[in-house]
Amino acid sequence: MKTLVVNPYLPIPARCTKIVSQTELEKLFRFEFLGKTIQENFDYLPGQFLELSIPGFGEAPFSITSTPTKKEYFEFCVRKVGTVTGALHDLKEGKKVGIRGPFGNGFPLNDLKGRDIIVIAGGLGLVPLRSLINYILDKRDKFGALKILYGTKQPKELLFRDELKAWEERKDVELLITVDAVPEGQEWSGNVGVVTTLIPKVEMHKDYTAVICGPPIMYKFVLRKLDGKLREDLIFLSLERRMRCGIGKCGHCAIGPKYTCLDGPVFSYEEIKNLQGAI
């Protein structure tokens, strides 16, 4: 038996270079590793995640929302829900955190290249999908059609508004947005209804590849709407589970015999269709 040098539990310091408020609860954080060569050599796939550590508060997994085509930094978009996310929301530009990763499989770029793609995002699900969308847009000729369906509970929860606008204006992207409801005092002239109501509004042939991410309850309904329309091996879902280690050791993220952190977070529908407790 050989003793090891690599320690997958050891965070590497990174500095926060920019914070942009997105909504009441979400902020976009830009980071750079302290060592220039570390940052230059840092590579990842859209759909992978990192463990972010704020010493004393703890560690939590976050999807990388930037695209690997931008080498100078990486970004998270984080909702404030508890201890670590609360401490992160209190962080100021210039301050440091610890980072481990990237972990997980990421979106299957090989299955996506050359294909027509439909992206379906619910709420915070847009965070990892933004990485994929911007990756596709940066390498536009490598991919076919790109249709994006995005839904949130209410208009004020929409993320990345500037980018949504830019995507909407592009001829090579079809973007449809909807909100579940429009509470009094908020302005909205677009679609109203859950994200599944957008599916019949877009034209798709059987060979479209679907990439889906949203809150746990969303998957069932989206899959029901897509049933029979697309190939099961070409529907990809990015799943969330509780995670502590990110490296297949702590057991928290298990779905049956699979570990979301190792075998996922992206699974094809074919792979998990019969998996107990997946959807």
């Binding site: 320690n7 050891l10 965070p11 590497i12 010493p55 610890g98």
Partner: peptide
């Protein structure tokens, strides 16, 4: 697993 220093002194050691 790790010992750390916080804030500006931030450092992680196995």
């Amino acid at each position: 697993l790790i010992t750390f220093k916080k804030d500006e002194q931030l450092e992680f050691k196995p």
